[in-house]
Structure formats: structure tokens, C-alpha cells
């Protein structure tokens, strides 16, 4: 039976073989990506991986060298104004609009989007109501970011594109940001946001795409990501002395991918559930455990896991 054609309205973002080069430098290489309507999609990668370039292409701030981008079923290039009518954006680079106050910024956005939101309610929601009547040119980076997020929320957009939304925010601000993302997702909006911090993406996303040096190395669910992170987690067990044959015993444990010694320490690459067993085996071998350190998989470890480095 042939697969039924996907209803167009169900796809929020659709990139087909998108390549972008600047002079001789390749920023994106053949990126294929589909984000379903209603999804919260995290776009993960180190600085310079091409996250912002991808977002620039979605908003027609940059043109792809090759390939096609569609947003909300429309061509990202030729129908960009229609795309932006239904999209709320927190851009990577943002500057205040002249000497407008915070409230004037939100009012300007409401007018541009022909919406009827209450500016004060929006500023209350993003935590800048106290500064509403001050010129935004005097705001701190974090406050400007909150203002821009507020502008993105105007008119309940079908799609929210947030470029590094938590950078520059204090922990409390980052938490509020996550709450807002959850609320918007509950309303039915698609949220596409980029980050170079794994934990922030983990906390809110249904699916994650990992971009490395312009190439989409993985698109996976959070569970898939956790699995990969588990595999590459490390623990270091410091002992009074290392008994004979211990490394082989540890390597034999289910869930341990590697084991080696480093001075008086045994370093095991293993999934989280196997960590207890590693300690138990060590003690059984007759060694005294002096210290245990475990490290979560870093973003770099994840890349290694996905690009076949581990």
C-alpha cells in the first residue's frame, strides 16, 4: 500500500538538502530536517555549528546556496512575509528599536502583526513589566532578551523560533523561559529553539537535532539522546591499590563500554545503571574505594557518540 501523502499543514518546518556557503566556508551541508506541527524541537550544537544560519534561512535573513526551506507549508524565501505573520521570533542578534520604550516595542509588534494582545499582559508574562516605560536601549542584555521574547509571543504564533533563548538569562529567567515554552506548546504552537546547552534542550524538547560543523548528525527523541548520553558517561573510582584482573572484571559488566587505569584510579565508560555494579565489583576484588567521581556526558561526548567516535 503506498504511503498516504503527508498533509502539508502538519509540517511546521521542512528543510530539503539545504546547503549554505559563505565564500569558501561551508556553514551548512545538505541539511534535511522535518519538524512536525505542535512539536517542541531542540536544535543543538556548539557555537558555529550552523544553528543560527539555519534559523536565518527559515526567516529569509540569509538565502540558501542550494536546497529548499519551507515553513508552515510556505516557501521561506518567496513567502517570507506570510511566514513571519504566523511566526514569533527571538533572533540571534537583536537590537532595540530606536529609543522606543519596552511597551512601545510590544505595541509596535502588535500593530505589525495586526493583533489585539494586551502589551502589559505580555510584559508581565516575560517579567519586564516593571521596566515597561523605560527606553529599551537602557535595558540589560537579559531584559532585552525578555522583551524580544515577549514580542515573539504576540498574536499567539503558530510557530516560535527562538535562537539561544536562555543565553544571558539568570537561572530564574531560564526557568521562566522553559515554562513559557511549555505553555506555548500546550496551546498547540510548534517551538523550534536552538541551544548549545544540553540540559536546557533536554528539559523541554520532544525531539532534538544535533548539528555539528554544518551537518545534521542526528535527529532523535530525548530518550534516544539519553541512551547515547548514558553510554558515554564516565566514572572514575580511586582505590588504595588496583587488584590484578580488575579491569577485565569491570569490562565484563553489562553496560560498561570501556575500562582503563589512570594512576590509582579505574576509569570506566558506562551507562548510569551499571555504575553501582562497577563499585560493587571493585570492592569484591578486595580494593578499598577512596573516592568516586562520575561525569555526565558532555555535548562533545554526544557528538562523539553520534558521529561514531565512541
Amino acid at each position: 500500500m503506498p504511503a498516504a501523502p503527508e498533509p502539508r499543514g502538519m509540517v511546521a518546518i521542512d528543510l530539503t538538502d539545504v546547503t549554505k556557503t559563505y565564500g569558501g566556508v561551508t556553514a551548512l551541508q545538505g541539511v534535511d530536517l522535518t519538524v512536525e506541527s505542535g512539536e517542541v524541537f531542540g536544535f543543538l550544537g556548539p557555537n558555529g555549528a550552523g544553528k543560527s544560519t539555519t534559523i536565518d534561512i527559515l526567516l529569509d535573513h540569509a538565502r540558501p546556496t542550494a536546497g529548499q526551506a519551507r515553513v508552515l507549508g510556505m516557501d521561506a524565501q518567496s513567502e517570507t512575509v506570510a511566514v513571519r505573520e504566523r511566526t514569533g521570533v527571538l533572533p540571534e542578534r537583536f537590537g532595540p528599536l530606536g529609543e522606543m520604550t519596552g511597551r512601545q516595542h510590544v505595541e509596535f509588534t502588535i500593530e505589525a502583526k495586526d493583533a489585539n494582545d494586551d502589551p502589559d499582559a505580555i510584559m508581565e508574562r516575560t517579567g519586564i513589566a516593571h521596566a515597561a516605560d523605560r527606553p529599551a536601549s537602557g535595558y540589560s542584555k537579559g531584559m532585552t532578551q525578555r522583551l524580544m521574547l515577549g514580542m515573539a509571543l504576540v498574536d499567539d504564533p503558530d510557530l516560535l523560533i527562538l535562537d539561544e533563548p536562555t543565553t544571558g538569562l539568570d537561572p530564574n529567567g531560564a526557568r521562566q523561559m522553559r515554562e513559557i515554552v511549555h505553555e506555548e506548546a500546550d496551546r498547540g504552537a510548534t517551538v523550534f529553539f536552538s541551544s548549545h546547552i544540553l540540559e536546557q534542550v533536554e528539559a523541554v524538547c520532544d525531539r532534538v537535532g544535533i548539528l555539528d560543523q554544518g551537518t545534521l548528525v542526528a535527529v532523535d527523541s530525548i530518550d534516544g539522546l539519553r541512551e547515547a548520553a548514558g553510554t558515554t558517561g564516565e566514572m572514575a573510582v580511586t582505590l588504595d591499590a588496583i587488584p590484578e584482573g580488575l579491569i577485565a572484571d569491570i569490562e565484563a559488566i553489562d553496560g560498561v563500554s570501556s575500562a582503563r587505569t589512570d594512576g590509582d584510579s579505574v576509569i570506566a565508560g558506562c551507562e548510569n545503571p551499571a555504575k553501582g555494579e562497577v563499585v560493587r565489583v571493585t570492592q569484591q576484588a578486595g580494593a578499598t574505594v577512596e573516592n568516586i567521581e562520575t561525569s555526565e556526558a558532555s555535548l562533545e561526548d554526544l557528538f562523539a557518540a553520534y558521529t561514531g567516535g565512541a
Binding site: L59, V89, P91, T109
Partner: peptide, 17 residues
Amino acid sequence: GKRATGELSVLLSLPFS
């Protein structure tokens, strides 16, 4: 000037061509 400050990114994130 708006291009340099990032104001243009904001304006072009709203429905202006």
C-alpha cells in the same frame, strides 16, 4: 546603522519585507 545594531534583524523578524 540598524543593520549594525541588530535592529534590522528584529524588524525583519516581524512581517515587514
